[in-house]
Simulated assay, not measured.
Amino acid sequence: MERPPNLAEAIDAAAEALLGVLEGAASRHSVPVSPTQLRVLSLVSGRPDVNVNRLAELLDVVPSSASRLCDRLEATGLLRRVADPRDRREVRLVPTAAAEALLRELRERRHRAVQAVLDRMPARGQHELLLALLAFGQAAAMATTTAAGSESDPPARTA
């Protein structure tokens, strides 16, 4: 099957629309942190052994920028630094219960917003979208795995 010449443009437009729906779900309610801070909380929440240096790698920023982000989140009561029980010299980042509740609430709002858009699509279109997204995800994962083995690391940015 030949790819339509504007498929990449259509995907880009759909991604922009999806981002608009997701951002709209967050902005309609007062979220006490910036999008970057939300990303930090999300990354830390999904990785129980993350420290500031690893967080900096995940964000593609220098460690001092990641540390300042953590300072701000710690000051708001959304993040804690704790000693690693296996190595007391190592400091781990742990989201607080308030951070977990914030992430859960935001995730639920985003899911409802996306579902509202899906509800406006015919069932067949939803099924085709699901299959296409699964295939796209698999292809992207393969491309990421291949690229990770062949590229050098880009320079770190500041946040």
Rank of each mutant, 00 (worst) to 15 (best):
R3T: 15
P5S: 07
A8N: 03
A10P: 00
I11E: 06
I11P: 00
I11K: 02
I11A: 10
A13M: 06
A15N: 03
E16V: 02
E16S: 03
A17F: 11
A17K: 09
L19H: 08
L19T: 06
V21Q: 01
E23M: 07
A26D: 09
R28Y: 07
H29C: 01
S30D: 02
S30T: 00
V31I: 15
V31F: 13
P35K: 05
P35L: 04
Q37K: 08
L38F: 04
L38Q: 02
R39F: 01
V40W: 01
V40A: 03
V40I: 03
L41M: 11
L41Q: 08
S42L: 06
S45Y: 10
S45I: 05
G46N: 11
R47F: 05
R47P: 00
P48S: 11
V52L: 07
N53T: 15
L55G: 04
A56H: 05
A56W: 05
E57R: 15
L59H: 07
D60F: 13
D60C: 12
D60I: 14
P63G: 14
P63I: 11
P63L: 15
P63E: 15
P63Y: 14
S64G: 06
A66T: 04
S67Y: 10
C70V: 15
D71S: 12
R72D: 11
L73G: 03
T76F: 07
T76R: 15
L79Q: 07
L79C: 10
L79H: 06
L79Y: 09
R81F: 12
V82S: 07
R86K: 12
R86H: 09
D87R: 03
D87F: 01
R88Q: 12
R89G: 01
R89D: 05
R89I: 00
E90I: 06
R92Q: 12
V94F: 07
P95D: 11
A98N: 14
A99L: 08
A99S: 11
L102N: 08
L103E: 09
R104S: 15
L106N: 06
R107F: 10
R109D: 13
R110D: 05
R110G: 07
V114N: 02
V114W: 01
V114I: 14
V114Y: 01
Q115T: 11
Q115R: 13
A116I: 02
A116M: 11
A116L: 13
V117T: 10
D119Y: 05
D119R: 09
R120N: 03
M121H: 09
P122K: 01
A123W: 04
R124G: 05
G125E: 14
Q126S: 00
H127Y: 09
L131I: 11
L131W: 04
L133T: 05
F136M: 12
G137K: 01
G137Q: 06
Q138N: 08
A140C: 07
M142C: 08
M142E: 14
A143M: 04
T144M: 07
T145W: 14
T146G: 07
T146I: 09
T146F: 15
T146S: 13
G149I: 02
G149K: 07
S150L: 15
E151Q: 12
D153F: 09
P155Y: 08
A156N: 03
A156F: 06
